[in-house]
Design a protein around this nucleic acid. Sequence first.
DNA 1: GGCTGGAATAAACCTTCGTATAAGCGGTGG
DNA 2: CCACCGCTTATACGAAGGTTTATTCCAGCC
Lengths: 232, 232
Amino acid sequence: MIAAKMPLPSMSVSASRAGAAASAPADEQLAVVVDDDPSVREALSSLLRSIGLKVELFASAAEFMAARIADVPRCLVLDIRLPGMSGLDFQRQIAATERNMPVIFMTGFGDIPMTVRAMKAGAVDFLTKPFRDQELLDAVLAGIGQDRDRRRADGVTDGLKALYDTLSGREQEVMTLVCSGLMNKQVAGEIGLSEVTVKIYRGQVMRKMNARSLADLVRMAEALGLETGRRG
Amino acid sequence: MIAAKMPLPSMSVSASRAGAAASAPADEQLAVVVDDDPSVREALSSLLRSIGLKVELFASAAEFMAARIADVPRCLVLDIRLPGMSGLDFQRQIAATERNMPVIFMTGFGDIPMTVRAMKAGAVDFLTKPFRDQELLDAVLAGIGQDRDRRRADGVTDGLKALYDTLSGREQEVMTLVCSGLMNKQVAGEIGLSEVTVKIYRGQVMRKMNARSLADLVRMAEALGLETGRRG
DNA sequence: GGCTGGAATAAACCTTCGTATAAGCGGTGG
DNA sequence: CCACCGCTTATACGAAGGTTTATTCCAGCC
């Protein structure tokens, strides 16, 4: 019942689900390299390792898709020319799955339209060979930083979603209406209950969502994207 | 004192300040072309006009900076090679001012690093000459769409900001603390006032901000970026 | 049949909110 | 000087929020 005291931005939620995905030593960071040239793989690997990153190497998109990738802040380094699949198609495919991670392209022969497509699709950077080591490292660190930020945001939202899913149908209904600014009395009328009943559900919502105040609850509803707009 | 009744998404705010910036016929859209080649300017102008856009032409960055640009959804079409200034520098300069608008680059001789820089800096597209008419039109319409969306968001926030600025110092203080979830009594303790005083300010805040409920006010505080986090 | 458990409700009670009335203080501007 | 505005407080009252206790109804189960 008592939630652990971990500071969270703006909201006093502490998602349980800790201890579940805890397999990596906290602040580990991973670079994933997909390139069909073994010598390139090795060179990149040693470069990336030199700044303390874990590295995973793959020779093809298919190999990558089949592997299990550590669930830590990470970034994909990709040659745009890959055996069997264009790097751009690969990028799109990755973005569509839960293997989602920032992508950095390398190329020896790319053109501008290709670059534009990649960047529009959200690539972190697009490096032309030859490039300086530091360029790649900067890009990878930026990508990993992006991924860490996304993870943090997702983590908060997921925790919230998990709590919200523990609410009964009525409780969810009441939460939505209360957060849209209606008084208990109005909520009662809206869904055909007595005011007391609404109060009880409301209390249960506050407890289950671990909200210390109505303001807290409203922010949670916002983060969850509940329909709190229509009114009037 | 009484605000006009215009529906606003999710929040029952109605910013006054209407009738001030009302100089353009509502849904007008503008393409701004900066290119030192007169024949290119003319060709682009007639192309863009053909789909109903207003067009402004400039031969140089300096000329553009000196002109007054209509305050409507708009988009800048720019050759990356400009007299006196690189298109990229120009882009950065524009982003820093209130002339801020989406940028589309055209180039006959660009390279990939240049493209990457431009896209990272937020360019909508980067077209290599020769390009098909439709490519440019698609890009311009996308850019204008972005600008319209930004304007809409800014408009709501600005309206909110304007209301917030009408609050006295104490009222702003109370609003922040109330929206962070504190009870009147706690707010009073926090800033050394009696509870009644806080209640009065709170009421004035609700009235001045035109908030129908606490939930409303909390959402406004969020949109305004008030520090509602620290607590505990 | 009888038991259990969840949903919904009522009554009672206390807290918190919100507003009105009245009143005191200090600075600004006509 | 006075009017006005912002800031402050006290008292009082009615409305809304929140919890507890107890009761009813109904569905599922041994």
